[in-house]
């Protein structure tokens, strides 16, 4: 999936192109609204933190179980506008995944199929720049789910707080120096990244709480390493 990501600089072109050719009306609306100017300062951007729990790590074999999102800006995370859905995956849940995300068989059995929430989900994402921690889950899983049900590709720019953390902590001179000394790299997992900014530990593996945790992490990263004027085009992937 990584190879299929459009180049960071070319997101506006990709979105405009998709908007003009897309036949599925719901996706077309999203692409039309989602044309974000890469020059927009991060301080002015409307953002939405997104997280999902899945039955595994492979988008081609595993499915989405829950989705949480929290709209936010650099200044404020609005819990009142949060959304959370549990959805029924096409295949039954394995015991390991239940242990991890604590969503049980019975909860899933009563949940709707993902298709039933597309309208709502796409409306929430429209006109907002998504923020995730580790984009190689949210984006491919959504793409795979939408392609499977609507027959069209669905890709969108995201700010990946994990890759920002990697830039800061893995690609710096100090990080390379540490590696050269044979020290293990710092952890860029959500929990460990938050710790570095003095953010409180949260109970992980709940899509809504992880979305909130990701939003807080981006605020902290920008406060510490960027500026409100930093253009979103230099942060997204």
């Amino acid at each position: 999936m990584r190879g299929a990501e459009p180049d960071r600089q070319r997101w506006p072109e990709y979105l405009r192109g998709r908007a003009s050719v897309c036949k599925e009306p719901r996706l077309a609306r999203y692409f039309a609204a989602g044309t974000l100017d890469p020059q927009t300062p991060i301080g002015d951007a409307t953002l939405v933190a997104l997280d999902m729990e899945t039955t595994g790590l492979d988008a081609s074999r595993h499915a989405i179980v829950s989705i949480g999102l929290v709209p936010f800006t650099l200044n404020r995370i609005c819990l009142a506008e949060r959304r959370y859905w549990v959805v029924r995956p096409p295949r039954p849940l394995s015991r390991e995944s239940v242990a991890l995300h604590r969503i049980t068989h019975s909860e899933v059995a009563e949940a709707p199929d993902l298709e039933a929430i597309f309208d709502d989900l796409l409306a929430e994402l429209s006109g907002r720049l998504a923020v995730v921690h580790y984009r190689h889950i949210e984006r491919p899983f959504l793409n795979s789910a939408i392609q499977g049900r609507l027959g069209e590709e669905f890709k969108f720019p995201v700010i990946d707080t994990m890759s920002l953390e990697a830039r800061i902590h893995r690609q710096s001179l100090w990080a390379r120096f540490r590696r050269w000394l044979g020290r293990p790299p710092v952890s860029i997992r959500l929990h460990n990244s938050r710790e570095r900014y003095g953010l409180p530990p949260y109970q992980g593996h709940h899509a809504l709480i992880d979305a909130l945790a990701t939003a807080e992490l981006l605020q902290a990263q920008v406060a510490n390493h960027y500026r409100p004027e930093t253009p979103i085009g230099s942060l997204w992937s």
């Binding site: 936010f72 200044n75 404020r76 995370i77 609005c78 819990l79 009142a80 949060r82 900014y197 003095g198 953010l199 909130l212 939003a215 807080e216 605020q219 902290a220 406060a223 510490n224």
Partner: peptide, 14 residues
């Protein structure tokens, strides 16, 4: 209350 809270991060010294 919990559902209506807004959240913000402030770096030390801000």
């Amino acid at each position: 209350l919990a559902g209506r809270v807004e959240v913000s991060y402030f770096k030390a010294g801000t």
